[in-house]
Design a protein around this nucleic acid. Structure first.
Length: 390
DNA sequence: GTAGGGTTAGCG
DNA sequence: CGCTAACCCTAC
């Protein structure tokens, strides 16, 4: 139960002030091998929170390294998104130390030492998959930049942060999707399917892990179906009523549980004036509840069945449970500011096409310094422009 | 990842 | 206002 709640909490909680990895230690010790997934969830949450705060620093590198180790423990594949995210985060971390005009003025050499010699040196030692061609290219570029002021300037002026953030976002998207349903979600769904129609359960079984489905959806689907299956006999109704009672109890328990965790981790929200929408489980966990029933339970909620005292919470907006829902990572982002191509970039592109043809990805990787601000699509578009003029 | 059509910003 | 470069969206 601890584990389920922790997992659920981690998936839904979006609070930059909370460190998810602390959550695990705040819980009773559930440390065993089968907790790897939970740990991954925690790390993903930390990465996500870090992004929300807008910090891309060495702590992020730590998290990515931890994530890699956990994935290895799980015998998962290390995906390209993780490698790219690590690479660009490392570059971003280094570039933070390039604020002086001269390489020798600031802490650039320290950064090289800390990040590339020590940290990435260790990765090389254990032959980590994170050490990619791209990463090595950056390493040599940074080392060269220390000697060559011109290259130093060039790197210094590039916008690495944008790339780092988009790679990290992509990484999160993929990893969340890989995690699939939370235990609570799949458990709830299993129960629902079993109860509704044992045959349908078998048919729908293969949909269980589908990303993007939510308990909310289940409840909708269930309600729409309820209209069709109107001839429920009385026995069944009685049975369902007793099940409802059970769900209500569980929902209350969970709600209380989550509130406690919330208080433990983030005292600033402890007064509970604002309904924390991460906490209302009753709507989603009890799909059977009809309106009258729900308000009644909400109202009489001062004390839960276990006797915990909680502040009264107004019913918040129902949330989509799944962190996988489309749109969560796809904020309507404003158009990128327009930036005309420099002759240098155009040259790099021309050289690249000569060497690699139209594989924009390879071209970008081969000269990621000059082309740092240009996406693969940008290269393609620019090439189209260049051709158009001939 | 790439191609290709669509949209927008900047300039004369 | 029209043209073009840069940027975006989406199908494959």
């Amino acid at each position: 139960m601890d584990k389920w709640v922790a997992e659920f909490f981690l998936r839904r909680q979006q609070n930059p002030r909370v460190y998810a990895t602390n959550l695990l230690s705040a819980l009773k010790p559930v440390d065993s091998d089968d907790c790897v997934k939970l740990k991954i969830t925690a790390v993903l949450r930390d990465i996500s929170n870090s992004l929300i705060r807008g910090t891309v620093d060495e702590e992020m590198l730590d998290l990515l390294e931890i994530l890699e180790k956990l994935l290895l423990q799980e015998h998962s594949v290390i995906m390209d998104s993780l490698k790219s995210a690590y690479c660009w985060t490392a570059a971003e971390c280094t570039i933070r130390f390039m604020w002086p005009v001269n390489a020798s003025d600031g802490f650039f050499s320290d950064a090289l030492e800390m990040i590339w010699k020590k940290r990435i040196g260790m990765l090389k030692e254990r032959e980590s998959d994170l050490v990619t061609h791209e990463l090595l290219k950056w390493e040599s570029d940074f080392n060269k930049a220390f000697e060559e002021p011109e290259l130093y300037q060039k790197i210094r002026e590039t916008n690495i942060r944008y790339n780092a953030i988009s790679h990290l976002t992509q990484l999160l998207k993929e990893q969340w999707a890989l995690l699939g349903c939370s235990s609570l979600e799949s458990e709830a769904r299993k129960m629902f399917l079993k109860r509704k129609d044992p045959n349908a359960a078998r048919k729908k079984g293969n949909n269980l892990g589908r990303a993007g489905d939510t308990i909310g959806n289940v409840s909708e689907r269930r309600e729409s179906r309820k209209g069709k299956v109107d001839k429920v006999n009385e026995q069944e109704q009685v049975h369902e009523a007793s099940l409802n009672k059970g769900y209500i109890t569980v929902a209350r328990e969970l709600k209380g549980y989550l509130l406690e965790i919330q208080r433990l981790l983030d005292p600033s929200t402890s007064q509970g004036q604002e309904p924390n929408n991460a906490l209302d489980m009753s709507v989603n966990v009890t799909p059977q509840l009809d309106r009258a029933n729900r308000t009644e339970t909400e109202d009489s909620e001062g004390t839960s069945s276990s006797g915990r005292v909680r502040p009264h919470l107004p019913t918040p907006e129902p949330l989509n449970v799944s962190p996988l829902k489309k749109g969560r990572w796809e904020k309507p982002r404003p158009r990128r500011p327009m930036k005309f191509w420099t002759p240098e970039e155009v040259n790099a592109l021309k050289e690249g096409v000569k060497e690699y043809g139209k594989s924009w990805k390879d071209i970008k990787n081969s000269n990621s310094v000059v082309l740092a601000d240009r996406s693969e699509v940008d290269l393609k578009d620019k090439w189209r422009n260049l051709l158009g003029r001939q």
